[in-house]
Amino acid sequence: MNEILRLENVTKSFKYKTAVNNISFSMKKGEVTAILGPNGAGKTTTISMILGLLKPTTGDIKLFNSQSQELHVRQKIGTMLQEVSVMPGLTINEILVLIRSYYPEPLPLKDLVNLTGLTEQDLKTRTEKLSGGQKRRLNFALALAGNPELMIFDEPTVGMDITSRQRFWQTINTFANQGKTIIFSTHYLQEADDNAQRILLFKDGSIVADGTPQQIKSRISKKAVSFLTDPEKSLEILYHHSEIEQIFRKNNRVYIYSDHTDKILELLFQEKIGAHDIQIESGNLEEAFRQLTSENKEAI
């Protein structure tokens, strides 16, 4: 009974597009998982299906071994959607009191305020007068109101300033340490890397990688050796070596991508390229991530 969430061969097709294509994964209690991918990769569709807001075209989704619509499931989950939601005509305080009354064991109001950084002033403000940031904080508080075991956040930090962002992740880490299960989507590799123990990398509706941030990073980052050499010098001799994944010149500098940088160094001297000012780069992670997940338009 350690398994909180399970998706089996889940596909969601809309009229003209398959948004999610045959994905499967499960999550254990206490895991913090990031759904990482560019816009349009199927992150929101997946989260909507987990929450029961969308029905999968085929496949099966179980939360706490049940369907998401069931009452005991609803009592155990807390969510924050991309779309900011407020109830017009009430103050933040009143909404929190109301939503807390839906749950059997809600978090104390004081805790909700402390955890989300709402101020005394915010509490007295009616929702129609809230700023974007205040609404975001309110939505975070609403997600936590029922003291959920499973938290599901769709792009939670969009629209937050840096301070709120930091506070948000701090709170999330506290909950992770308490053994809560957390799943969130993001299109920032950094955010996934900093806050998740596991990353599901989405691309075009499929999971292209599933592992720890370390594994994902080593998978997507390319190491490179770069050096200066006489522009007249032919590099053709290097092309025959299979260790080299990619080789190109940029501003007089030659770049060689390869996982085996030591081997490349050896080759450079062996083949007497005349390389100087040699640099070894572990590769720009964000750049590599963008390349991996974007359309293969530069594949020519």
């Binding site: 807001l53 009452l71 609803r74 959607l81 779309e83 939601s85 109830m87």
Partner: peptide, 10 residues
């Protein structure tokens, strides 16, 4: 977005 949120509560 309130209707959607309410659907997700118990």
């Amino acid at each position: 977005g309130w209707s959607t949120f309410i659907r997700l509560t118990p």
